[in-house]
Design a protein around this nucleic acid. Structure first.
Length: 935
RNA sequence: GCUCAGAUGGUGGAACUGGUAGACACGCAGGACUUAAAAUCCUGUGACCUUAAAAGUCGUGCGGGUUCGAUUCCCGCUCUGAGUACCA
């Protein structure tokens, strides 16, 4: 029988499911290996050919590791809370749980069709109460913790209370809100319960605080910074504005330094690490206080100084003005009557500018003088205080010192508003025409640091500022605390209720706090989140629950631990399971999660480690980003007549330059190798039933462009169709064959036939001309062993370095060689089946059982051992260059010593001819092989 | 603007640490089988110059450099993709 992929694949998929072939046991004598995929959000559209790319790679790796004797954990689940299901629910009234369930079933069917070796007994779904119970539990641990800078880790809030009792805030070094009180133990003792709770909230790692948030009116919710792209929501592209709101946040800033340092310990793609480094945005500098000059006009000041952050404290003698962000809280207080109009106009003008305009308009210099002055603490100089929108309220202190000679932006500002430009380093050049940011040379015009170099000046100034208590060296991070609440329905309820306006956790044994049923999924008329619609939903029948739910990243920030022990109902995972599986050895997924999921997961992992629940500081040892598969859109060209109307005439791509045309996207599934199937096209576009086609060589050739894969571009390729016509094994190998895993590439089906032919050829190796199974037990020939061991080595090397595309080529070569050798040898073919099985598991299982082995035993059979001896040849021919140019081929025996070869090569007639009697200058030998003779 | 990645035949891409560039596949051309087509199999396929054949010259975005030898390393440039951006 010829290669019947359909029967074979169905048979083995059923077998694996029934026998739970890939169920991983926690107590194993084998070494563990944890291979994780980023679990999908089950969208209504199902999988397209781009989705499984990473899954196929991880599956190959998992199967390979099993053959290599590892106990492999390779689970899958669904990130099933999220906006699309809720948007759909708002439109249709269908409960998100219902649509989510339906989508999951579609996904499962599609995934099963590709033959993955997932351990489905460990499946997780973030929207399952048995799962989100533990997401809520982690939230409670965060609420009950504070970050102690002395021990540099999170601790239970009780240790903070002990400190308050013992010595008040005196020896508390914590990451906390800025408005914490300083108090004595006696003060703490006299505080009411409410006052204490209010104070503790400023230290908790999840906390409620009035903060500026990204509010998206269209979605009716706040968004985290990483969910906003260029002033629009990442999902849906709706406008986002800044708004002050009472919000739950996570104190991720406490972990900024550890998140940064940890990057050096993990094997991740450099771009992702770089993105995280930028996101954390560490800058080393100093904060300096400039006293506001007292004046009769400014009477009510909440503070009498302005604090700036600078990375170049050494330039402080060159400061010629100070700038506040227009949103800075002191602006109203320091503006003089005379300048009131200017300032008001400027603020109004800034507000009108959208976020996008403000970014596009970086060239224009703008600002307004407040009328007030500040005093430079080091020089005592009186300098003007301005506002300008190039200063961002959200970064640093929202105030900067302007040093025109050292910073181009400050230079432009000074030039525009006629402010002084002072040279501060003798090495600065041409500061009449532009700023010079050099750190070279000695300081001039700089008071007590005159004559010093950069390092000495910085050190001196920092010490001076600290001593005078007007500033100090400071490290600033760009990363903000993560907003945690979402005004949405389809997410984890936050396990909190309110008493006297203060939040309290529900009891642990009351978890999970179930998502209540509501009639509509919209916010209430009064603008409260959808959960406010839940009738009678009160804690102990009297206290209001928190109405917002958790963001999408909550459930995905710890899910890899749940897979370790997915059914546990007394812990998020048992201590034994965590001790055994430890961390993820290989994580494959897209790089688009760099500042979201991948950062939050590291944060929660570090937190759980601080509390002793998990073992490892970093959750994902190695990360691989699979490239995105783009769509390849096909176009047909409609001829436009002289009046500019589109006609019913379609011209082939190669001839379109002779006509005026308009392009029209056409379904890629009716185009083969850019040749349009005209009959199917007429069905696809019935308005072209009578269309005329201008052909080239009798064919209609379509145009091509690479675009995002999307339904509306008619360029979506569904894996099911390919599995139907070629089988899952072909699809798996073809997706790998397409190119390097990490590279983005457009999908095209042009080469899939080649992979299919390969699998059929492989199948035929085991069959005689009548297509009945046939192998023999002869002794393998030298040539056969060579072909086999070449591929064993190649695939092993390729898999270890994630170069799956090249090993597919390797298999093709091996099968071609063995076909040419008419190899029917059982031993050779068995080994070949084993090494191919991670790539094409179905056909290999079938052949394995035809070879007489127990069904299903293939997945755990030891990988064949590579023996280099089989690759050694008795005699081979290789070229020798003379002066770097290829000149001659010589036959050499490998048994010869290098010295011996050298002598023989030099004695060779042809070499002699080139040498022309002279001795060679140099003979270059690489790995015992002469490659070049230099005359 | 900054950071990172990349540029190899008609196409996707190989070449792992500098050592026969273009593996493997697609496409194309020719051939076999066939009444014919499809399918299958075989042969050829970087460019140039020649030839009966062999050989030769050029060739990995562009210009330089290091080296006996460079797709690979270094310097400068062009282009493409990704990330990021008044970050003080």
């Amino acid at each position: 029988m010829d290669y019947q992929f359909k029967e074979i694949e169905q048979k083995w998929q059923k077998f694996w499911a029934q026998n739970q072939t890939f169920k991983a046991e926690t107590d194993s004598a084998k070494p563990k290996f944890y291979v994780l995929d980023m679990f999908p959000y089950p969208s209504g559209a199902g999988l397209h050919v781009g989705h499984p790319l990473g899954y196929i790679a991880s599956d190959i790796f998992s199967r390979y590791k099993r053959l290599k004797g590892f106990n492999v954990l390779h689970p899958m689940g669904y990130d099933s809370f999220g906006l699309p299901a809720e948007q759909y629910a708002i439109q249709t009234g269908q409960h998100p749980a219902v649509t989510t369930e339906a989508n999951i079933n579609t996904y499962r069917k599609q995934l099963d069709g590709i033959g993955f070796s997932f351990d489905w007994s460990r499946e997780v779904r973030t929207s399952d109460p048995e799962y989100y119970k533990w997401t809520q539990w982690i939230f409670m641990q965060l609420f009950n913790s504070w970050y102690n800078l002395e021990t540099d880790r999170a601790e239970d809030i009780s240790t903070l209370i002990e400190k308050f009792n013992a010595a008040g805030t005196a020896d508390v070094k914590a990451v906390c809100d800025e408005d914490t009180l300083n108090f004595m133990p006696s003060d703490w003792a006299t505080m009411t319960e409410e006052e204490r709770q209010e104070e503790l909230l400023k230290y908790r790692l999840t906390f409620l605080k009035e903060s500026t948030v990204n509010w998206c009116a269209a979605l009716g919710t706040v968004l985290a910074n990483d969910e906003v792209k260029d002033g629009f929501s990442e999902r849906g592209g709706h406008p986002v504005e800044q708004k002050k709101m009472m919000q739950w946040s996570m104190r991720i800033s406490a972990y900024a330094e550890r998140l940064l340092q940890g990057l050096n310990t993990i094997d991740w793609p450099e771009p992702v690490k770089e993105i995280q480094r930028n996101w954390i945005g560490k800058s080393i500098g100093a904060s300096v206080r400039f006293a506001i000059e007292p004046s009769a006009e400014i009477t009510e000041l909440s503070q009498d100084y302005i604090e700036v952050f600078t990375t170049r404290v050494d330039t402080i003698f060159g400061v010629s003005y100070l700038v506040l962000a227009p949103e800075h809280e002191l602006v109203a207080q320091v503006t003089t009557v005379a300048q009131q109009n200017d300032i008001n106009n400027y603020i109004a003008q800034t507000k009108k500018k959208s976020e996008l305009d403000r970014m596009a308009d970086v060239k224009t210099v703008s600002g307004a003088f407040t009328g007030s002055y500040v005093i430079n603490p080091v020089s005592g100089e009186r300098i003007q205080l301005w506002i300008a929108d190039y200063v961002l309220a959200g970064y640093g202190t929202g105030a900067v010192m302007g040093v025109p000679s050292g910073d181009q932006r400050d230079w432009l500002f000074a030039r525009h508003f006629n402010l002084p430009i002072v040279q501060i380093l003798d090495a600065q050049q041409d500061i009449e025409n532009q700023a010079d940011a050099t750190k070279e040379g000695k300081y001039i015009n700089s008071g007590f640091i005159n004559g010093m170099n950069y390092a000495a000046a910085t050190e001196t100034l920092n010490a001076w500022l600290e001593e005078k208590e007007v500033g100090k060296a400071k490290i600033n991070y760009r990363m903000r605390d993560a907003i945690f609440g979402r005004q949405r329905y389809w997410g984890e309820p936050i396990p909190v209720y309110f008493k006297d306006g203060l939040p309290y956790l529900i009891k642990e044994e009351e978890l999970p706090l179930m998502l209540p049923e509501i009639d509509k999924y919209l916010p209430t008329e009064t603008g409260e989140p959808p959960l406010a619609r839940a009738e009678g939903w009160k804690y102990e029948d009297q206290y209001e629950y928190e109405m917002s739910t958790m963001p999408g990243w909550a459930g995905s920030s710890w899910y890899w631990y749940r897979y370790m022990d997915a059914k546990n109902d007394s812990d998020f995972a048992s201590k034994d399971a965590i001790a055994y599986w430890k961390d993820v050895d290989l994580y494959i997924g897209g790089s688009e999660h760099a500042t979201g999921h991948l950062l939050y997961s590291r944060f929660w992992n570090k937190f759980l480690k601080d509390l002793g629940y998990v073992k490892e500081e970093e959750p994902f040892k190695k990360l691989i980003n699979q490239g995105m598969i783009q769509g390849r859109t096909n176009f047909v060209y409609r001829v436009i007549d002289e009046e500019g109307r589109s006609t019913n005439k379609l011209v082939s791509h190669g001839l379109k330059k002779d006509y005026k045309t308009s392009a029209l996207r056409v379904d890629v599934n009716i185009v083969d190798n850019e040749i349009l199937d005209i009959a199917k096209f007429k069905l696809f576009r019935p308005e072209f039933v009578d269309a005329e086609f201008i052909l080239e060589n009798g064919k209609y050739i379509c145009g091509v462009e690479v675009e995002k894969m999307s339904k509306s571009y008619f360029n979506v390729v569904n894996p099911d169709i390919l599995i139907e016509s070629y089988g899952a094994d072909t699809l798996r190998m073809y997706e790998m064959f397409l190119g390097p895993l990490e590279q983005s590439k457009p999908w095209n089906t042009n080469g899939i036939e080649g992979v299919f032919k390969f699998l059929r050829k492989f199948w035929r190796l085991f069959h005689n001309d009548a297509m009945t199974f046939h192998v023999n037990d002869s002794v393998p020939s030298k040539a056969e062993l060579k072909a086999l061991h070449k591929i064993i080595k190649k695939v092993q090397d390729d898999v270890e370095r994630f170069s799956f595309n090249t090993s597919v080529s390797g298999f093709m070569i091996a099968v071609n060689e063995l076909t040419d050798l008419k190899c029917k040898n059982r031993q050779i073919l068995e080994d070949l089946v084993i090494i191919l099985s991670p790539y094409a598991p179905h056909v290999c299982e079938e052949l394995w059982s035809l070879l007489g082995h127990e069904e299903g035993s293939l997945s755990y059979t030891p990988y064949p051992t590579f023996n280099p001896a089989h690759l050694v040849e008795d005699e081979f021919s290789y070229p020798i260059s003379v002066n770097g140019k290829t000149r001659l081929n010589l036959s050499i025996s490998l048994t010869w010593e290098p010295k011996e070869i050298e002598e023989l090569v030099l004695a060779n007639e042809d070499v002699q001819k080139y040498l022309d009697g002279k001795a060679p200058k140099k003979v270059i030998v690489v790995k015992g092989r002469i490659v070049n003779v230099v005359l």
